[in-house]
Amino acid sequence: MFEEGWSCPGPAQQLQAVESTIHNAKRTLIQDHMEHCIGEGVDHGGANAKQTLSEFKTLSNYL
């Protein structure tokens, strides 16, 4: 980037944009997982409450 004449803030701005995109994608993926896997498991009796709570706690660490 520097070789191409970018200003000093340019690379930092690009890294911030990439980081923000990854963060948003991760949040969407985890929320989708919570909704489909955990939510449907509870609705259909596929998972007990203790297991579901454990999975939720684990996933919430990644938000």
Rank of each mutant, 00 (worst) to 15 (best):
K26E: 14
W6M: 03
S7N: 09
C37M: 02
E19I: 07
G39H: 00
E19S: 13
K26V: 10
S20N: 06
V42C: 05
G41I: 00
H23L: 12
A25N: 14
T28F: 12
C8E: 14
T21M: 12
R27V: 14
T21W: 15
H44R: 12
N48E: 07
E19M: 12
G41N: 04
S54K: 15
V18Q: 11
Q14D: 05
H36F: 08
S7Y: 06
Q14L: 11
N61T: 14
Q13N: 14
G41H: 03
A25W: 08
L15Y: 08
F56M: 15
D43R: 13
Q16N: 06
V18W: 14
Q51L: 05
L29T: 15
K26T: 13
T58C: 08
H44D: 04
G46P: 00
W6D: 09
V42H: 07
K26C: 05
P11M: 05
I30P: 01
N48T: 04
L59M: 09
D32I: 01
E55G: 04
E3N: 10
L53E: 15
M1R: 11
Q16C: 04
K50F: 04
L29M: 13
Q31E: 15
V42S: 06
K50E: 12
P11T: 02
E35V: 00
A17P: 00
I22W: 09
S60Q: 09
G10N: 01
K50R: 15
G46C: 03
E19W: 14
C37N: 12
P11I: 04
